[in-house]
């Protein structure tokens, strides 16, 4: 059986990890390459870099971060943030990314999912979805959660897979930052309609939450601040998951 993946997400701004400034053990607290190396040692199964650099002229720095990380950390690396074209994807893949995550660009131009997966394979294209509860269903938000669309999450996720998405990174905006657990219902509903892996994101606050969301159908679990601020060590989390009959590496 495939093991559940535990994935730390690093927000990178102009070459520095933004949420990781509380590290005490590292010489260079915000250096993404050093943080990536440490997570690799702790047992992270994959890394996601989210480029939150606002200005386009600083994108080259992110590219350099990807390059340097891929030279030293030999686990899968997903990069997202600000990717708008197949050419953007190619540049990142060449730098050493294994997968590309697209969010707003996929909503604005769904063909990008198709074009990217045709060019680089389905496994390369991760569609990130920011979902927010709206009555009985969930609505897709774009632009880092600032703009509400008229897309229904369940319908959108199906369309993404039809277009060639190889994986879904599903973030609950309602749960994000609350630390009171993932949106289990959302994960359940989404994993009911697609058979590609779903990475659950938003709301992790303690070890139990990870076990719950795996039982709800997630193939991978993502967290950011919980790992960055050392509230939970990946190795301890995996130990706990294993004790609860979740297969982990």
């Amino acid at each position: 059986m495939v093991a559940i993946r535990v994935i730390p997400c690093l927000d990178v701004n102009a070459g520095r990890v933004v949420k990781g400034t509380n590290f005490v053990d590292l010489r260079d607290a915000g250096n993404p390459v050093e943080i990536a190396k440490m997570y690799n040692i702790e047992g992270a199964d994959e890394l996601i870099f989210l480029d939150i650099t606002a200005s386009s002229d600083k994108r080259a720095i992110t590219l350099d971060v990807v390059k340097k990380t891929a030279e030293q950390v030999f686990i899968p690396l997903t990069v997202g943030g600000g990717i708008r074209t197949v050419e953007d994807m190619r540049t990142l893949l060449k730098a050493g990314a294994d997968k590309i995550s697209i969010n707003t660009a996929a909503v604005l131009n769904p063909n990008l999912i198709h074009d990217g997966s045709r060019k680089f394979g389905n496994q390369c294209i991760v569609v990130a979805i920011d979902a927010k509860k709206d009555g009985d269903s969930w609505v897709v938000y774009t632009h880092g959660g600032r703009i509400k669309t008229n897309l229904n999450v369940i319908k959108w996720v199906q369309q993404c897979v039809e277009l060639g998405a190889g994986e879904i990174l599903l973030t609950s905006m309602d749960k994000d930052g609350t630390k009171d657990g993932y949106d289990l219902k959302l994960v359940e509903e989404v994993t009911k309609v697609v058979t590609v892996p779903v990475i659950a994101s938003g709301g992790a606050g303690k070890k139990e939450h990870f076990v719950d969301v795996c039982k709800a159908g997630a193939s991978a679990v993502l967290a950011a601040s919980l790992f960055h601020f050392k509230q939970l060590k990946i190795s301890d989390l995996k130990q706990y998951m294993k004790q609860n009959n979740i297969e982990v590496r």
Partner: peptide, 16 residues
């Protein structure tokens, strides 16, 4: 190919 009533994740992606 998934067996009958099996929810098989494809691609086979991850650590095994």
């Amino acid at each position: 190919v998934p067996k009958r009533n099996e929810r098989l994740i494809i691609p086979h992606m991850g650590w095994n």
